[in-house]
Design a protein around this nucleic acid. Sequence first.
DNA 1: ATATTTATGAAGGACTTCTTCCTAAAGGGC
DNA 2: GCCCTTTAGGAAGAAGTCCTTCATAAATAT
Lengths: 379, 379
Amino acid sequence: MRGHDLAALRRMNTNAVLRSLRTQAQTLGQLSTSTGLSRPTVELLVEELVAQGLAEEAESVTGRSGRPARSFRFRGEAGHVVGVDIGLHKIVLLLSDLSGAVSAAEREDIDPRMSGPDRLAFLRARIDRFLVDHKVRQDDLWALAVGVPGVVDDSGRILSVVVPEWTDLDLARKLGSAFSCRILAENDVNLATLAEHWRGAAQLADDVACVLAGRRSSCGVLIDGRLHRGRRGGAGELGLLPQLGLARAQDVLIWEGERREGESEVEALARAAGEGDPAALEVLDRYAARLAPGVAALVLALDPELVVLSGGLTPAGGSLTPLLVRHLRDITLHVPRIAVSTLGEQGVALGAVRKALDCVDEALTQAPGALPPLPPPVR
Amino acid sequence: MRGHDLAALRRMNTNAVLRSLRTQAQTLGQLSTSTGLSRPTVELLVEELVAQGLAEEAESVTGRSGRPARSFRFRGEAGHVVGVDIGLHKIVLLLSDLSGAVSAAEREDIDPRMSGPDRLAFLRARIDRFLVDHKVRQDDLWALAVGVPGVVDDSGRILSVVVPEWTDLDLARKLGSAFSCRILAENDVNLATLAEHWRGAAQLADDVACVLAGRRSSCGVLIDGRLHRGRRGGAGELGLLPQLGLARAQDVLIWEGERREGESEVEALARAAGEGDPAALEVLDRYAARLAPGVAALVLALDPELVVLSGGLTPAGGSLTPLLVRHLRDITLHVPRIAVSTLGEQGVALGAVRKALDCVDEALTQAPGALPPLPPPVR
DNA sequence: ATATTTATGAAGGACTTCTTCCTAAAGGGC
DNA sequence: GCCCTTTAGGAAGAAGTCCTTCATAAATAT
């Protein structure tokens, strides 16, 4: 609805070049064709990006005949983001540069009985130590995202059933005093969904429902490739509806068969099912039957392209999906593709990285000039 | 990801002016502030729009001191669109100009036993007659949208349970031979949802679920103000899930109390409930209890801002909503606002008009130059 | 060593927007 | 009825952005 002037046009074009450069290092000629801009224009814009430290000249590709073209690449090392997953039992931290290359990962168990305030202090100190250990200065950290096991509303407040003391906590603001970058809090399953779309099982789909089935049942929803949070951040919480029986689905997951050393009950079940053990398959089928109504409700409500299953049972995914598909066939209009999460324990933290990068993206898009020290969130 | 040149900038700005002008007639000065463009630029663009026939000078507003400003308005009469609702029992046709002003409405009963081919021929002839009767020439008709009682997939094919013979029919293509404009087919409930957002109960909300409860149970989903159709157009079809019991919800709607002359059973029930009749309220409460799981599934899956109830029971809406809210409170995280459809029998056709206008919009946005005879859909 | 291919870089032209300044037209006060 | 104030209209000039074109440079292939 609003018009644009020449400066805005320039910003848009700078952005187009930056985006294209970020997917892959390219020569000026390639950039010209990929953006649709003329070569001289691209050259000008790239020079600007180089001056800002967001791009730099790379080795020119040789081998073909003709004068070798100058090649440029996105300078991911211009800044870093951190993604954190703080669950009830553990914390996972990931360090990534602006290009999304993860350069450090840490994991630590947490006492599930840790109190709310202690937990917050722990989180702050743990992130701080993580940054120090990996030599990330405050002004090199552009954004920080934290995944929590609870609904996060638009204002950033948490409605947590897993850590009751964190209810109504504005986590981003509490962390804001310790870190000067953008800080984001988000529901863990939503982040896992983002991660699956970025680097997991949902890379090729834009309408995705990601079902977490485990101690807690929840679901993340991606529409048109973007996270759908809902009015109060509560989209996907189908686990709460008793009629669908998701909450108690895992009760049927009992495996009394052989259990090799170091295997958990679920791992043993998954292995047995993979080997074709009829008893194991029967257990899985009962589980699929319990999962089906909840998944069907999602499928009927959203008609997604893909449903991703995540949670404790992913090792058995290969055996589980055909069983689930069979149950879904009876109660849905179209059975979508079903896939199993490929990211494991790092999924949520990786989604947090993606969310932090999205935040950086947005800031870059709006003002590709003044960047490195992103201001803290305005509230 | 692609760059833009000056011509594209111009298109964008022309569009901004057109959009602004369409919401309301304005002076050049007002357009300048509303679009953020300078006055000379706005003047240039408006002149162009006038030359294209999309805008014209209106009476300048006088009364205030100072030289009166020239005022311009969108020329809605530059073209027309038609929205059609063809249900099992009736057809509704609406004629609208490009500004969305409905200038003609017709309704006609249909024999529900009419065969599929006859029904198609009837639809074509009926639209044709409608156009002739209201003196709309073919090249004055920019788009035509038809709502059907069934799922319409992306390719335009219908999956209809109401008119079985229309299954797999590509309605738009079939009508394409008779009309030279853009033709669109869409699920009726989806269109009703669009209509509620445009001119009904959902004008102020952008995340909306619109529940049709009646002979057939279905639902339309609006996310970020846009219709969410789902991968195969099947989003919102929660009525099909037996666990939620939507399909049989209306079975409890039995009213054996007083029935005034001309009243249907449901109307009598609604009136009695409105008068506080305890028996009527009990019936409604039983109905609300049956509706609740399905609505809760939607609410938990999407966390919408607003749920709109439509269908046969809308006359009782005022009594029904508080009952439904009470049932929802137990099984959802956040109870959204509940509203009752205000559009009645014209809702679907009005949504079809909106869809046709959206199609015109898109075409205008892409090429605000060569317009009046929009080419038929490319397939 | 020469020809070919491809990229570079500079110059000129076209287009769009903005700012600025002066003029025009209406209403209100004297 | 005249003048002043207020607001809009219109023209000119300047700045910015992009495109096209052409001569030049630097590799590889013959």
